[in-house]
Design a protein around this nucleic acid. Sequence first.
DNA 1: ATATCTGCAAAAGTTTTGCTAAAGT
DNA 2: ACTTTAGCAAAACTTTTGCAGATAT
Lengths: 150, 150
Amino acid sequence: MQPTTVMPPMDELRKVFREAGLSLTHQRVVLYRAVLEMRSHPSPEAIYERVRDEIPSISLGTVYKNIRAFMDAGLVREVSPHHGTLRLESNLEEHHHLVCTRCKAIVDLEESDLEPVRLRRELPGGFRVDRYSVEFRGLCAACSAKPDLS
Amino acid sequence: MQPTTVMPPMDELRKVFREAGLSLTHQRVVLYRAVLEMRSHPSPEAIYERVRDEIPSISLGTVYKNIRAFMDAGLVREVSPHHGTLRLESNLEEHHHLVCTRCKAIVDLEESDLEPVRLRRELPGGFRVDRYSVEFRGLCAACSAKPDLS
DNA sequence: ATATCTGCAAAAGTTTTGCTAAAGT
DNA sequence: ACTTTAGCAAAACTTTTGCAGATAT
């Protein structure tokens, strides 16, 4: 198992939430713990299903609101910067992406722009890789020139 | 500019579409050319806006249907394998992902599982990279054991 | 002539928002 | 007491689907 996030005890949770400006509700504690425990990169729906065992009356809206709060506070992250709407590419060659997290612009990098990626260990059992690509996230020139106003 | 996809002449388009089992409609030709020309990894909405200059009566439904047809035929690809629903992660360390394109499972690879990624050239002007990660796409053991049935 | 496609509208899925009562500080 | 949150419902947004008339083969 990877040495990832450890379940924080209640008094540390209190601190984490206070620093994030989030008040400490039962729903929030259960949701946060669920996300830390679930190693599967869960969807909001999956979290909702899971948390309902503990709080049957919780609403999906509450799940979404808290996920957003956790993301805004930097407690969790979303896996893909362009979830939400489909983005297409016609470049079928192996290549990589530069992604602006602000304006969602995507720019291709040619495969030859990078040294080949090399694994140091075997991949987890039986996974068959078709292809890989490297995603560089950051801010494009235009967005990093503008003020943040968030 | 990258040596990406070149605009195919009409008789080659005819061949491409025939091999994909797609009949040659005006809308389809205009849509396909639009996707090849747009280097911005466009969304369906962006393609719709663009194509409306040429075919004002085209419907958004037709855009979606043809995008799906192009993707199924392998003429274009979607940038992210997990668009459509948000996926969360609580691992805030630098790491990489193994993604099953069939069941959408996501597994973390530790940063130390890979040799560091090295660039051979400067990035396009002014882009500020916050972090990068490598995404390996393929089939997990369970999915590659099952038949395709698509 | 037959199969496929377009446009339109309805529907399904995902996420956000507004409101009031409830809970946290 | 005051502020923030939960639950609920409505709404917004993205994508898919069903169908009748139009177009392609």
